[in-house]
């Protein structure tokens, strides 16, 4: 497929929604501490972007836009009279929430968690178990013990997993 302008259809908007919506809900939850309101807000952002015919240059741009839009919506709500009237309002929290550091670290943690989860979900079950433990800093010996398999089998599973994930994890590094 080549670059250039693509007509954005309901179908491709659905793909975008499915690739971003779960993370954005969890992200909003970090500000609002209420999953139902979080879902509503994220859905409203998706409706608005469609109605306003906003376009994106690429995936990075689209992802960044949605995180930022959801953040702004959450902060506006936290500062609103409606919220102050109904909830315990803690000024200190709002200030922490408004920092770029809170925003970026939450967004990156959630997005990275989603990317890892998606990558692992493409692996065969055993290899997925090995990688999950490996991510939690289990050594090969500990993984072998935990799953009642040999250390060599652990290494084989890792090899299979890295091979399979190679296309997913494009990279360039010095040998």
């Amino acid at each position: 497929m080549r670059g250039g302008d693509h007509e954005f259809t309901l179908e491709s908007y659905k793909k975008l929604f499915e690739s971003l919506y779960p993370q954005l809900c969890v992200f909003a939850y970090k500000y609002l501490n209420d999953l139902e309101i979080s879902k509503d807000f994220v859905q409203e952002v998706f409706v608005k972007v469609w109605e306003d015919k906003i376009t994106f240059q690429n995936e990075n741009h689209a992802t960044g836009f949605f995180y930022k839009a959801v953040k702004n919506k959450c902060l506006n709500y936290l500062k609103s009279k409606q919220y102050k009237a109904t909830e315990r309002y803690e000024l200190a929290n709002i200030e922490a929430y408004e920092t770029e550091e809170f925003y970026m670290s939450e967004a990156v943690v959630i997005e990275t968690t989603a990317v890892i989860n998606k990558a692992i979900s493409q692996l065969p079950e055993k290899a997925a178990q090995v990688i999950r433990l490996s991510i939690e800093d289990y050594t090969n010996n500990q993984i072998a013990e935990e799953l009642s398999i040999s250390v060599n089998t652990v290494k084989d599973h890792k090899k299979v997993a890295y091979r399979k994930l190679r296309d997913f994890l494009s990279f360039l590094t010095v040998k």
Partner: peptide
């Protein structure tokens, strides 16, 4: 319809 760059 949207114009969307290579999102597919």
């Amino acid at each position: 319809p949207y114009r969307f760059w290579a999102y597919g």
